[in-house]
Design a protein around this nucleic acid. Structure first.
Length: 325
DNA sequence: CGCATTTGACCAGCGC
DNA sequence: GCGCTGGTCAAATGCG
């Protein structure tokens, strides 16, 4: 079904020869240089920060991941006043408003992640949100004094032909909107699993139609309904964020690849991602921690062309964010 | 027939 | 207060 729709949407972007755009060289990481894309959701507090994944020097030090928890990485002015306590964990591990960038996930993917500053406040508020969701309609007037609280959000830039990536979870599309300053519509999906309020938005980059920006909101509180070929579920568990199976199918294999390249490659098709996935994942400390755990090998991994050879061109992203600023 | 998608309408938040 | 924009709803529609 989605496939159909995806194809439909893609008709308008005939030239998706992104596979030819694979950058062959790596440069230095500019994690701090990356603009914080607030245009995406400045009103709601989501800020997308994109790390220049292409800028990783060949001799880059594994301590790269130390950066991920640097509190002052990405100042985010629009932190909303939150009444809830910050997530003790895992959100607490990664400082609020920090941008975490995962290393490229699959051989053909680079990942950028982002988070909303609201993410950290979601702690234990998930059920609240669900209730809110349920009663939203009936209690609309109630929101006057209280800003609608949102789940933590994580954005992934994926270079893909398809808009809606198959991440193993089942999604139901509940809306589509034209986005300002973008010729491409934004699609809204909700996890179909009962009780799971996870949502995701999918839109294409206005600058590079081959890039799909997927923003997840919330965390799955259930196992992945689809047992991914090759056992992604297991891999996810191993990654330490079983509850985040979905979006992290992508980043998760990153450090595994260094050990089981073949396995990772087998995962690729599962994602329906023909190429790169960039993900910014500031609120997934467990992942970060794992990265640290594998710190040394990460460096090796980064050097490995297996992952970075198919990254979204940094220029592309930079341009995009300049635009959006 | 059941489920997913489409799409117009509605609502909330924000800036001016 | 008004207009703009993002986000969501829900009836209509499509598809297997």
């Amino acid at each position: 079904m989605e496939k159909k729709q995806e194809l439909k949407t893609e008709n308008s972007m005939a030239n998706s020869a992104f596979s030819d755009e694979i950058p062959g060289s790596l440069s230095l990481p500019s994690i701090f240089d990356m603009p914080c894309d607030q245009s995406h959701d400045h009103q709601k507090g989501l800020s997308l920060g994109f790390m220049d994944m292409l800028s990783i020097p060949a001799d880059y030090n594994p301590s790269l991941f130390d950066l991920f928890s640097t509190p002052t990485m990405m100042p985010q002015p629009q932190v909303q006043p939150q009444q809830e306590q910050p997530l003790p964990s895992p959100a607490s591990t990664v400082p609020e408003s920090s941008e975490v960038v995962n290393t490229p996930a699959t051989p053909n993917s680079s990942s950028i992640s982002s988070s909303s500053n609201e993410g950290q406040t979601k702690a234990g508020g998930e059920e609240e949100d669900q209730d809110q969701e349920k009663t939203k309609k009936q209690l609309k007037p109630k929101k006057k004094n209280q800003k609608r609280q949102r789940e933590p959000r994580f954005a992934f830039m994926t270079k893909s032909e398809v808009d809606h990536l198959d991440d193993g979870y089942r999604w139901r599309k509940y809306g589509q909107k034209a986005v300002k300053n973008s010729p491409y519509p934004r699609s809204y999906y909700r996890c179909t699993t009962a009780g799971c309020g996870v949502k995701k938005r999918v839109e294409r980059s206005c600058d590079d139609s081959s890039i799909v920006v997927t923003t997840y909101e919330g965390q799955h509180k259930h196992p992945c309904p689809v047992t991914p070929r090759g056992g992604i579920g297991i891999a996810t568990e191993a990654a330490g964020f079983s509850t985040f199976a979905s979006p992290f199918v992508v980043p998760q294999p990153q450090y595994q690849q260094q050990q089981h390249p073949a396995y990772i490659y087998s995962l690729q098709p599962r994602l329906n991602v023909s190429t790169s996935t960039t993900n910014l994942n500031p609120s997934f400390p467990s992942f970060v921690q794992d990265q640290r755990r594998f710190g040394t090998s990460s460096a090796t991994f980064l050097r490995d062309h297996g992952l970075l050879q198919d990254i979204v061109p940094s220029q592309t992203r930079k341009d995009q964010f300049k635009e959006e600023e």
